[in-house]
Amino acid sequence: MADANNGRIEIEGVTKRFLTPGGEVFTAIKDVSFTVEPGQFCAVVGPTGCGKSTTLGMVSGLDRPSEGTVKVGGKVVDGITDGVSFMFQADALLPWKTVLANVALGPIFKGASKAEAQARARDWLRRVGLTGFEDRYPHQLSGGMRKRVAMAAALINEPKILMMDEPFGALDVQTKAIMSNELLGLWEQSRPAVLFITHDLDEAVALADKVVVMTSSPGTVKAVYDIDLPRPRGSVQEIRFEPRFLELQHQIWDTLREEVERAYARTAGGPVTEGKAA
């Protein structure tokens, strides 16, 4: 498996359709193509309902495209993709398990022994700064701490690909910034390919090597930008004031704005019916 291409995500002409209750066909994304190189940090931005999460689902193998192919490491995705970890906005922790048990779950699912899994989990909890909290339950932690646990749980399997679906969406601004920094720090260590979904453009530009802008309903790729800010980026709060950051941010925002406005105009008229594409 030490393939040079391992971790490369190739999305080629992917279309995904759902059947609505009325029997109509709803196209969530249409003819989407882009590639994420191994070790690359790719952010996907776009208005609500543009099929970002659908795309993630297909890369991980939870969903299958109606048309086109998704390849990971050169192989067409069929079933759950190996070497992928997920991080959601909600932090996917089992409420009846301790912090340690939650983090150890991944290796156990992968077939590791309990002792080994716990040893690794302890190590990862140390890395995210939660030593001493192993025996707490998720509801006994603050939002930021839970996020760290989720991050440890996502990284413990040493994924080739890390998929993040608005992972910091529910956090306040300060916590979000701290978590972003930590994420970058951890990412630098193992360098998985990252597919990061967000609707926060600043966040996307600050973190990513590449930003994919998607249109809404059906979701298509509108533009792809390479972010040539140097790495390591340092603090995400500070990078926002760099001229190159602002330049890129403006450039992408111009592309994005009309999409957001279009999407808003459409959804403001009636109740939002988010499909699985939400």
Binding site: G57, V84, F88, A92, L93, F109, D165
Partner: peptide
């Protein structure tokens, strides 16, 4: 049930049975 709990476990490599 929360979708992310189930999907996270799936992506971690847990089978449907698991």
């Amino acid at each position: 049930l929360p979708r992310d709990l189930i999907e996270a476990a799936r992506v971690d490599g847990a089978s449907h049975f698991r």
